[in-house]
Design a protein around this nucleic acid. Structure first.
Length: 214
DNA sequence: ATGACGATTTACT
DNA sequence: GTAAATCGTCATA
């Protein structure tokens, strides 16, 4: 069977794991037994009680984010904005509320199925380009059919969801600020997002550096 | 009980 | 660029 990351592979700080996950492959076996897979090209690190952008800020713990406090290797899937799901990988030491948000995938297997999951019941004004299939945390969950039933799933043993080691390393790694956390004060400014700038499937690019030369 | 908000996405001016 | 969609969670009362 397929090689996958095991417990030790997740037992890192979120900042380290976020970087390590670039190039790894997120695999989902759907209800029909079809393999849906994508190369991870964008991640963000969250957690610790100090991180004001994290659901675990100030030690907050509730039914919603309970998975964050579980052992490394669990999936933390949450529902937000009344309509979207996002998926994290729990990491660090057992009981430590730290996780890595998967923000974008480069589709590899099951692209037709992902397309139908993304367009099903919706009316896109224009045909959905493949580059928009999994280029965002909620988009990739929709493409892979990930919802709250996957919250707390153990990626080291589950037969529907896991992560495989990288086959192709990231080409040009960029480390910059996280998306959508503007209200988190100084924590909004910390460079806790990583992406492979060589990929066309990244959700957002860092603002290009401006030159002050004439 | 009520109201504000959200680790987003999409459409529209 | 701005705004709508849409609802569970949380703070306040």
């Amino acid at each position: 069977m397929s090689e996958r990351l095991l417990h030790a592979g997740y037992r890192h700080s979120p900042a380290v794991l976020a970087r390590e996950l670039l190039g790894c492959v997120l695999v989902r076996i759907d209800e029909r037994g079809e393999r849906l897979a994508g190369r991870i090209v964008e991640t963000e690190a969250y957690g610790g009680e100090e991180d004001q952008a994290s659901h675990s800020k100030n030690g907050h713990r509730s039914a919603r984010n309970e998975s964050m406090y579980g052992p490394p290797g669990l999936a933390y899937v949450y529902f937000t904005y009344g309509m979207h799901h996002c998926m994290n990988v729990v990491c660090g030491d057992p009981g430590e509320p730290v996780a890595v948000l998967i923000r974008a995938l480069e589709p590899i297997d099951g692209i037709e199925r992902m397309l139908s999951s993304r367009t099903n019941g919706k009316r896109f004004r224009r045909p959905l380009a493949e580059k928009h299939l999994c280029s965002g945390p909620a988009r990739l969950c929709q493409a892979l059919g990930l919802d709250l039933t996957f919250n707390g799933v153990d990626l080291t043993v589950d037969d529907r969801l896991w992560i495989e080691p990288r086959t192709t390393p990231p080409v040009r790694v960029v480390n910059t600020t996280r998306v959508g956390v503007d209200r988190a004060g100084e924590w909004a400014r910390k460079p806790l997002r990583w992406y492979d700038a060589a990929s066309a499937h990244v959700s957002r690019r860092a603002a290009p550096a401006t030159s002050d030369l004439p």
